[in-house]
């Protein structure tokens, strides 16, 4: 068995060496052609099968690539949407801060900007938490304003933050007057989150819907002329001592993000700093 195998190997080696030698002498054309008769048709068939298989494979890969592209593009679109939202948000913040800065510069008072970091919006208490506290020399009853108007007052000062009682808080009341008629009164918060202007009936004859109500400056807590809101409805109670008017706040307390704290200086009328509100 082994001898037969060795003999076969010897014969094969001999044939190969002869073939190689013939080729080197340029005489192996016949052998090559004879083999090509066998190999060429097989190769043709295999090439076709291969091409078909690769075609199917290529289609599958294309499909997978399309799916991957689709996923990638969806992610990209999502990312760009988020980016666009972020840009819009930044733009809005930019505008808000510009308005706040403009107000800060126009006010004849010392102010400090603060950021709203929390909101309490239950019916019992309506307050905002601002990121300025004892460390920033904030004191109790500091007036808090926004470019649109009055926000409220500081009622609690902590180490790094303060609580702002918003105008709509049921315990809030501010001395005010109507700009057009100079009707004096008090703006009070209501549990349902609205504002009302309480005034002496004898003074209220001239009130109109849309009139601007501003701080009166009386009492020394708030400077005069800070917009509070506009008269929405008038509740004329006839012979009663007091009459009431519903006021739409100038500031949207639910959306406010930055405020100014009025830190000091002589209390005076600041109406000129609030443009177009009267």
């Amino acid at each position: 068995m082994r001898i037969r195998a060795l003999a076969l190997l010897g014969i094969i080696a001999g044939v190969c060496l002869v073939l190689l030698t013939l080729q080197m002498r340029g005489r192996a054309g016949l052998a090559s052609e004879a083999l090509a008769v066998v190999t060429t048709p097989v190769q043709t068939v295999l090439a076709r099968i291969n091409r078909a298989t690769l075609g199917v494979w290529g289609t599958y890969r294309d499909w997978k690539n399309v799916r991957a592209d689709n996923r990638r593009l969806r992610d990209e679109a999502q990312r760009l949407r988020v980016e666009a939202l972020r840009v819009t948000e930044t733009d809005a913040e930019n505008q808000r801060l510009r308005r706040l800065l403009a107000l800060k510069e126009s006010l004849p008072l010392e102010t400090m900007a603060g950021e709203i970091i929390a909101r309490e919006w239950g019916g019992w208490v309506r307050s905002l938490t601002v990121n300025r506290g004892r460390g920033d020399s904030v004191v109790r009853l500091t007036a808090v304003i926004a470019p649109e108007g009055l926000v409220g007052r500081i009622i609690d000062v902590r180490a790094g933050s303060s609580i702002v009682q918003v105008l709509t808080d049921p315990a809030s009341n501010v001395g005010a007057h109507v700009v057009r008629s100079r009707t004096p009164g008090i703006v009070e918060g209501e549990p349902r989150g609205t504002l009302r202007f309480k005034y002496m009936a004898r003074d209220g004859g001239g009130l109109r819907v849309g009139d601007m109500v501003v701080t009166s400056g009386l009492g020394g807590l708030f400077p005069g002329g800070i917009p509070i809101g506009r008269i929405r409805t008038i509740d004329d109670r006839g012979a009663a001592l007091f009459s009431y008017a519903q006021v739409t706040p100038a500031v949207d307390f639910a959306r406010i993000d930055e405020v100014l704290l009025l830190m000091g200086g002589a209390v005076r009328d600041v109406a000129a700093s609030f443009k177009g509100d009267g």
Partner: peptide
Amino acid sequence: LLGVQALTKAV
């Protein structure tokens, strides 16, 4: 070259 791989693979 005809025979090269034929020989090596046979071996």
